[in-house]
């Protein structure tokens, strides 16, 4: 916990340099360079299978990169022991594409799970914190339901509450609006915007959903063939004459 805090002011929360990752013969990431400033929201766009989700899993240490550097709060995460990595993970939240809620635990227990393991709160304090988090995402009435008893949109909300449980300063979103109807997707966007307003979260959002990315992002990066093809504001992307960028943006316009 101390190592990331020391360099917090000096270094951007997330720095990725020449990151490479292959699965067998398939090159998924082919030298990614990325920086996300404190409080900034970056959306990473691209076709399916271009390694967007892999990028997030590398940043949080769920997979190991073949080469390159990932620094979180200035701390290189490659080669860290599990305990050190866990200290860095406590500063990050991760919303999984399919929410990945623990299906044998209730909504309340899902959000309480990381808090129980992190310790430091009494039972009453923890219960209060869980209810606050669930109220933030509008799920305070479904405490005792199991994940299988709530809709996909509700599962995303609970997943977001769980990701926020340890008060992270970095949030990683893997397809937060995938598989949701437009209205529920807008509600999730509104929720992300609300988080950004209320806290100073640094976020990376991996998505196919261009309208959502436009709504919630400060900056966008478009990936192709394991590389960042272009990054900037939505206007910068619109100004691009690259055929792939034009094709990608026109799909949703």
């Amino acid at each position: 916990m101390t190592a990331p805090m020391k360099t917090k002011v000096a270094a951007p929360p997330i720095q990725v340099k020449t990151l490479r990752k292959s699965f067998g013969k398939q090159k998924v990431l082919n030298g990614i360079d990325l920086e996300v400033a404190e409080g900034e929201t970056l959306s990473v766009l691209g076709r399916s299978g271009t390694g967007k989700s892999v990028l997030l899993k590398l940043i949080i240490g769920l997979q190991q990169a073949d080469s390159g550097s990932i620094r979180v709060h200035g701390q290189e995460i490659a080669g860290l022991a599990r305990q050190q990595l866990n200290e860095i993970r406590k500063t990050m939240g991760f919303l999984f594409q399919n929410s990945a809620l623990y299906d044998s635990l209730t909504v309340e227990q899902n959000v309480a799970f990381p808090l129980e393991r992190a310790g430091g709160l009494s039972d009453a304090e923890r219960k209060k914190r869980v209810r606050e988090l669930l109220a933030t995402v509008g799920m305070e009435k479904d405490l005792d339901k199991l994940p299988g008893q709530i809709s996909g949109g509700m599962q995303k909300r609970v997943g977001l509450a769980r990701a926020l449980a340890l008060s992270p300063d970095i949030l990683l979103f893997d397809e937060p609006t995938a598989g949701l109807d437009p209205i529920t997707a807008s509600e999730i966007d509104a929720l992300i915007l609300k988080m950004q307003k209320e806290t100073n979260l640094t976020s990376i959002i991996v998505t196919h959903d261009l309208p959502s990315a436009r709504t919630v992002s400060d900056r966008l990066a478009l990936m192709r063939d394991g590389e960042i093809l272009i990054e900037g504001s939505f206007k910068d992307l619109q100004a691009s004459k690259d055929e792939f960028v034009v094709q990608f943006l026109n799909r949703d316009s």
């Binding site: 769920l62 993970r89 990050m92 991760f94 999984f96 990945a100 623990y102 990381p114």
Partner: peptide, 22 residues
């Protein structure tokens, strides 16, 4: 196995909980 394929074990790791222990 079900927890693994539905990313629940990844979610546990991402929450700084050691699945080997838990």
């Amino acid at each position: 196995g079900a927890m693994k394929v539905t990313e629940q074990i990844d979610a546990m790791e991402a929450s700084a909980v050691d699945p080997y222990k838990y």
